[in-house]
């Protein structure tokens, strides 16, 4: 194995050797930790806190999977990736899954050979400008200098938006969110564009957030979700149903506070199937029966994760909006555990 890694690295870094087929679960369990790709730092979604521990909405997704397969939500090795390095990292096996505000698109799903397991945040691309620029609509941005993170779908949406509206702009390509923030605050660009959630998260870290406005136009659909490599269906299923489990748990009222009590058995068969008191759902995934109990007791359900990291009571202050349960007029709709 060591030898093949050595030669594989020699051959081409991008197609590093290693077992790319259906053994991710066994590998992760043998390693004892989950390698999870996250962003290089976006407050609320994935960023290290004051004590150096990763926190955030995407981080919680990694922790949930680690809790399911390893029984320990802290057994995650976080790999910070930029917009440009994330896909190579996943394709080469450096990370087991990617949870990094990544938009689900046709070409990424089909051509790049990845598998999006679902959507954990329905987003859209927006624009942020300083308030004293006096701009109130994206249609007034003709001739503006725009900071964009390179290697993202925002880059392509931006080009489409400006050319379809007959406007010109000057793109300033930037590698990470932190650099973009610095350039934007220094006034090296008039506008910063990325997913609206990212704009809100970035604005929350500014000294004076009220001096910046997010323009009303949302110019694209950006369904963000975790993804894994093509070809390992078992692993894909585990990540997919961990996500679905988080969403279902909120719908069914299972929280980190009451999960232990509910796990002893309830009158609701779906809760029983999820928490392992009825049926062998965990074993079908190659896990034990308590997998979902561990997930929810360590990170909470979808709603708890949302409120704790990016919700209205946090500095980022995002409303649930499209990300509410379908019963509340949102788009979150988990397939049933049956």
């Amino acid at each position: 194995m060591k030898k093949s890694v050595f030669y594989g690295t020699l051959a081409v870094a991008a197609v590093a050797a290693g077992t790319l087929s259906a053994q991710t679960l066994a590998e992760v369990q043998e390693r004892g930790s989950l390698n999870c790709g996250v962003s290089t730092g976006l407050t609320g979604f994935a960023a290290p806190d004051a004590s150096g521990e990763w926190q955030g909405f995407d981080v919680a997704m990694c922790r949930a999977v680690a809790a399911a397969v390893l029984g320990d939500a802290m057994a995650v090795e976080f790999v910070p990736t930029t917009g440009q390095t994330r896909f190579t990292a996943l394709a080469s096996g450096e990370i087991d899954m990617l949870a990094r505000n990544t938009t689900w698109t046709f070409s990424r799903d089909v051509d790049l050979g990845f598998e999006f397991v679902g959507v954990n945040y329905y987003d859209g691309q927006g624009f942020m400008v300083p308030r004293d620029l006096g701009v109130s609509s994206a249609m007034e941005l003709d001739g503006a200098t725009v900071c964009i993170q390179t290697g993202t779908t925002t880059e392509l949406n931006l080009a489409d938006f400006f050319s379809s509206n007959g406007m010109s702009y000057e793109p300033v390509p930037i590698e990470t969110n932190a650099e973009a923030q610095q350039q934007y605050l220094a006034g090296a660009c008039d506008v910063y564009t990325t997913d609206a959630s990212g704009l809100a998260a970035t604005r929350a870290t500014f000294e004076d957030p009220s001096a910046h406005v997010i323009l009303p136009e949302i110019i694209s659909k950006e369904p963000l979700g975790p993804l894994v490599r093509h070809g390992d269906n078992q692993w894909g299923d585990i990540v997919r149903w961990t996500l679905n489990g988080l969403v279902s748990a909120e719908e069914l009222g299972i929280t980190s506070a009451n999960v232990a009590e509910l796990a002893t058995g309830t009158d609701n068969p779906e809760i029983n199937r999820m928490l392992g008191t009825e049926g062998e759902y965990g074993a079908m995934l190659g896990l034990d029966g308590d997998w979902m109990v561990r997930v929810i007791s360590s990170v909470g359900n979808y709603g708890e994760i949302f409120e704790g990291n990016i919700g209205e009571n946090t500095p980022i202050g995002l409303a649930r909006g499209l990300n509410a349960q379908w019963t509340d007029g949102g788009l979150l709709y988990s397939p049933p555990f049956r």
Partner: peptide, 16 residues
């Protein structure tokens, strides 16, 4: 490096 080796590779997945 930024056009062919960066954005193009990223959009098309043709690293090699």
């Amino acid at each position: 490096r930024s056009t062919l080796g960066g954005i193009t590779i990223n959009q098309t997945g043709r690293e090699l």
